[in-house]
Design a binder for these strands. Structure first.
Length: 439
RNA sequence: CGGGGCGUAGCUCAGCCUGGUAGAGCGCUUGCCUUGGGCGCAAGAGGCCGUCGGUUCGAAUCCGGCCGCCCCGACCA
């Protein structure tokens, strides 16, 4: 993409409305614009990142055996009356009346709907287990939206729902999600730590929050440092095999949020040099809740001997749009965002230091064409701007690699490569650069 | 939902207390200059001062209603 043609409205100054760093950077780097309190429009660069985050979530869900569906944003009030949550949910639910005076709502979650879909279609234990997910916009009318997309009213969420015949099966489904989440967040360059959680209004007796560590996190968290150091991506995972040992490996070590924290236990179980007291941001939450919805909504199947069995369920959420804020909180510096490779909107930012110099521009265009042809996502800054402005913008938007081409380098047959995260610079021939990026 | 604050140019803000029809910096446009870290010079464009009403000869400024946004707390993916 040529920057001269790209819609990328960066800001030199920080908008007054933004307080926390990720919100400021998202506004300044031209990723989003606020349309109302807690409601954002995604601009081209931000939308690219959102789609990358979404895709990683999708790939890991698919790998675990979950199947993607897409349910509507608007639901009927009747559906929610059946589970008893219509009145219980309170003013957080955005209620709508259509032209026929039918009561509708903008869905804050989908347990009722998916349970109904499942109930109407599945009648036999032979059709279990199933795990269905979707990635859809949700709305919760928060009293006080804040922190940009991290606590918006409208947000993109991956939520899924598992259906099993018995509790053992449901626990296995739960474990699959547990491991899939470890992998999902690790692929985004995050250190996500599962912490035993309060099950809250969704109900149930087994639940974990996945929390990433960031200095600006919303709540205090405590854990064993060994958890931070664990690596899930290096392992081969068999989702059909026994995942309990893997889950146990993570859950056996101390990890707790503020409200579940027990200082005495913490000090007893974790050696002083491994005690981590930090701030965290919740990016995922998994629940096992048994028959909490299957019973009131009559989601039953016929068992092997013909008896009716209410299915055992769990639900699992990932805050997709929130993750963008969380990733920035966890990965930025004074100059701007530092995207992890896997979610970066472009891999390479190509800077033309002297657009009116034929040799420089020629070298840039050749390189840009070759990188693009090889599938290396490249944002080419061909604007008629001074070098300083280009460096500042490129640092702000945080692409992992900057390739800088100026008259001196071209004369010497070299281009300069800068690593955004480390700041390390290297000069090399264009061919070497292409080889480096696999082009 | 309790408490507090703010709405003036695209952005950050001054002006308001002590009423007389609007300013700065950045950004934008044009020209010159410059070209490795938001450079310099010059000339421009751009605002019914959130909105409705009241007071007044006269309101960005004083008073009231409404709308919007932000912060602290309670609440939450």
């Amino acid at each position: 993409m040529r920057l001269s043609q790209y819609f990328l409205p960066t800001l030199k100054e920080t908008p007054a409305e933004a307080q926390i760093v990720s919100h400021r950077l998202m506004l300044r780097a031209g990723l989003v614009r606020q349309m109302s309190a807690g409601i954002y429009a995604w601009l081209p660069l931000g939308y690219r990142v959102l789609k990358k985050i979404e895709q990683i979530v999708r790939e890991e869900q698919d790998a675990s055996g979950a199947q993607e569906v897409l349910m509507p944003t608007i639901q009927s009030a009747d559906l929610w009356r059946q589970s008893g949550r219509y009145d219980a949910y309170g003013p957080e639910m955005l209620r709508i009346v259509d032209r026929h005076e039918r009561e509708m709502l903008y869905g804050p979650t989908n347990e009722e709907m998916i349970t109904t879909i499942f109930r109407d279609a599945v009648k036999s234990y032979r059709d279990l287990p199933r795990n269905l997910y979707h990635i859809q916009w949700k709305f919760r009318d928060e009293v006080r939206p804040r922190f940009g997309v991290m606590r918006g009213r409208e947000f993109l969420m991956k939520d899924n729902y598992s259906f099993d015949l018995d509790k053992a099966g449901a626990i296995h489904s739960y474990n699959k999600m547990f491991v899939a989440y470890l992998r999902t967040f690790a692929r985004m360059g995050l250190k996500a730590i599962p912490m035993r959680a309060d099950t809250g209004p969704i109900g149930g007796d087994l639940s974990h929050e996945f929390i990433i560590l960031a200095d600006t996190g919303e709540s205090a968290v405590f854990c064993d440092k060994s958890l931070v150091d664990k690596d899930i991506l290096g392992r081969a995972i068999d989702f059909d095999g026994d995942l309990q040992p893997t889950v146990n490996e993570w859950t056996s070590l101390y990890a707790a949020t503020d409200e579940m924290h027990d200082q005495a236990r913490f000090e007893k179980e974790v050696p002083a040099d491994r005690r981590v007291a930090a701030r965290g941001i919740e990016v995922g939450h998994i629940f096992y809740f048994g028959t909490r919805y299957s019973k009131p909504l009559n989601a039953v199947v016929a068992g092997p001997t013909g008896e009716s069995i209410a299915v055992e369920m769990g639900s699992y959420g990932v805050g997709v749009s929130r993750l963008m804020g969380a990733i920035i909180e966890a990965s930025h510096d004074a100059q701007g965002i530092v995207w992890p490779d896997s979610v970066a909107p472009f891999k390479v930012g190509l800077i033309n230091l002297k657009p009116d110099d034929g040799a420089v521009t020629g070298a840039c265009q050749t390189l840009y064409a070759k990188l693009s042809a090889a599938g290396v996502e490249t944002l080419y800054d061909d604007r008629d701007q001074r070098g300083g402005a280009k460096f500042a913008d490129m640092d702000l938007i945080g692409l992992p690699w900057q390739v800088i081409i100026g008259p001196k380098g071209v004369a010497a047959g070299k281009v300069e490569v800068k690593n955004r995260r480390t700041g390390q610079r290297e000069e090399m021939a264009p061919e070497a650069l292409l080889a480096r990026f696999g082009a």
